[in-house]
Design a protein around this nucleic acid. Structure first.
Lengths: 236, 236
DNA sequence: GTTGGTTCGTACGAAATCGTACAATCACTC
DNA sequence: GAGTGATTGTACGATTTCGTACGAACCAAC
């Protein structure tokens, strides 16, 4: 299977799939922004001020425990958006969102987004559907975290990143992946070796290259795909 | 800490917290229903036909993997509702919802709910906020599944059930809990013994009694509470 | 080229959980 | 009150992951 969630280059697919009048409505309020790696898009328990639609790059949503434990619960790129709590009329969330892979995109002030959604139920619906996809993704993250072995989770995660970038190369350290997956750094090192040994990826310092996507999907089979199907169904 | 998410007896809190005009709007379309244990409220990948607002009983949302692996990703009782995909304009989800503890509640046809939400943005917003709480809950399930030990996850799960029932007794088998948590049945048996040994619960055949809620919260500290805070913030 | 910080490879025993099995106990029916 | 099925208690080795540690490899700056 080829990459999922793909969309016309140079665009954000969530915006590209708006109908014409909604597109006209929101366009004037969007402005280009750089989304450098590490940029925080959403602070925990603080009102969302800007909502971002990546065109390149990958964002991570991270749940944070009482004691500060973190784990990634979802990621989004040019198929989606940050700040969905604006869409669910909840202003803020206890999670954090940040760019894990740098890129650029479009941004709109949260207040403004609220306004345009209010004036266009169809736009609201469109973003709501993305929220639903996000819930599905998070659910399957919970499923994978509960049932899947490290190697399978790693495969799933690499696939989800791969879907959201151009090309087959990503700048990722084992340390970073270990935090996202909530496992030991050393575990990730061993895991990547296994995938590398099977010829599915190639890993060099700070970089992972996907060699055999289908093979990776086979590795992740049970864990990958359902949220992506849901995206196709609802947004396409 | 006392039970969370509590609300006036004999009511569903999500409905009880609607404003007066919204309440009048939806009431005529609600009808009383029995929600016996095991009752399926929502089939995976099939359009939601009825939406349920429990008054007693507890419902579970379960994510299902490609190979049929299951894990509970959220639960709801008289503080919430089933069928949130109607709220997110997505009609259906790849998950299943069913009653894990029997009870009764109110039901409305999905179509009708769609209509009344369309005619009342404030009602739509209210349910959207619950959807946001659900996303938070699911995120923290992913967090717990990734980071917490069995004993901690078990405590968290018992607390979440406890919040949603009257009294301190629940009919639960180890087998059932093991499926919800995605662990071995034997593991749950050992886990309950530990909690029992600490005097936090009492377990008899097919039944768990919460003895020391605060103690349980201490056990689950890192994993429990944030989604509940979010509920208070948004619905109260 | 040396230095220093990041990243990666690898090792170790400890802990948690798994998969499985089987016997004991309970609740209910006949 | 004997039988039956569901539930629970307990055991076993196997597997996975943990926590930690330390050295090697790499990269960039001086």
């Amino acid at each position: 299977m080829p990459k999922r969630l793909s969309c016309p280059k140079g665009q954000n697919n969530l915006l590209a799939t708006l109908n014409e009048s909604d597109s006209k409505l929101i366009l004037p309020h969007l402005r280009q922004v750089e989304l450098e790696r590490g940029r925080v898009l959403e602070d925990p328990d603080r009102p969302v001020e800007m909502v971002y639609f990546p065109i390149t790059g990958v964002g991570s949503m991270v749940a944070i425990g009482r004691d500060g434990r973190r784990i990634e619960i979802g990621l989004f790129g040019r198929e989606g958006m940050s700040g969905t709590s604006v869409v669910s009329e909840s202003d803020q969330t206890p999670m954090e969102s940040f760019m894990q892979v740098g890129g650029h995109g479009l941004a709109i002030r949260a207040e403004m987004l609220r306004d345009v959604m209010e004036s266009s139920p169809s736009m609201h619906r469109h973003f709501l559907r993305f929220l639903h996809v996000l819930l599905t993704q998070t659910s399957h993250t919970a499923l994978a975290n509960g049932h899947a072995k490290l190697e399978e989770r790693l495969s799933r995660w690499l696939l989800m990143c791969h879907d959201r970038i151009d090309g087959d190369e990503m700048e990722l350290t084992h340390e970073f992946m270990s935090v996202m997956l909530g496992v030991r750094r050393a575990g990730v090192t061993v895991g990547t070796h296994i995938l590398e040994g099977k010829g599915l990826i190639r890993a060099t310092r700070g970089r992972i290259i996907i060699l055999d996507r289908e093979g990776l999907e086979a590795q992740a089979m049970q864990s990958y795909g359902i949220p992506e199907d849901e995206y196709d169904r609802l947004i396409g």
